[in-house]
Amino acid sequence: MPPVTPALALIIFIAGGVAGALGALLGLGGGIFLVPFLNLGFNFPITTAAAISLTTVIATSSSVSAGRTGKQLINMRFGMLLEVATAAGSLFGGATAQFLAQSTLQRMFGVVAIVVALIMVSRLKRRNVILDPSIDPGVLGGRFYDEESGGVVTYQIKRLPVAIGASFLAGNVSSMLGIGGGIIKVPVLNAWCGMPMRAAAATSAFMIGVTATAGAIIYYGRGQIVPVLAAAAVLGVQLGSWGGMRFGQKASVMWLKVLMAGVLAVVSVLMFVRAAH
């Protein structure tokens, strides 16, 4: 691990800013970019990189969700139900990461990075699922005003076991690799469980704070969160995601998705190469 210097803190602050802005534009957390930057670029152990990244995931979740409460986009009941699964997955993943070799975690990150790239490319033009507003949303469903379609959208939750399974997996991957896990949950909730895209994304962003906390507590207790660097990363990501959301709302992100999918493919290869050494 490199020594903690002001220059390193500044670099991590900027990297956090870029990761946060990309995350906001692409609807991902910044972790998928921040972890390989710290691990491959600066030789931080992957557990330290994941620990620092998890603190940024918590910060993003809290600040994004604080601004969204009251808009009905976050489905709190369904979110809290799924949190039982994500937190269990995260607890299990954070504990497992302590016993796995660095090379094993790097290979896992390589697999997840390529899966994320594929999901991103396959969903370039995905739009919201819109249902008849007169439907009863049920206990777990929801209803919100959708700006894109200019009306009230109602949805019911389908295939609950699938949602729970995906949440457990997302929580597991989240704390083992230091990412939010939204990229796993959101497509599943949208494609199979009946949630409109925006509600799925908002609910996932709400959940990842608790999910990441279950993992972060373990890393914190083990002394794997370097305070100065975590502070730099958190502030960078906060600033970057604010900027990304503020200025990037109207930007066309299709080319950016393709570009970043390419970057993730490279990250994946590098993770496997590094793991083999």
């Binding site: 009941r77 809290m80 139900l81 949190e83 039982v84 937190a87 269990a88 995260s90 607890l91 954070g94 504990a95 302590q98 608790v210 906390t213 279950a214 993992g215 507590i217 373990i218 914190y220 207790g221 083990r222």
Partner: peptide, 27 residues
């Protein structure tokens, strides 16, 4: 039902604090 679910989530967070303590003793 939601009191129960959120309580379970809270217990899971406590369990990770417990896991951190155990690891610090053993590893």
């Amino acid at each position: 039902p939601f009191v129960l679910l959120t309580t379970i989530v809270f217990l899971e967070l406590l369990a990770s604090a417990g896991a951190a303590l155990i690891f610090n003793r053993r590893l």
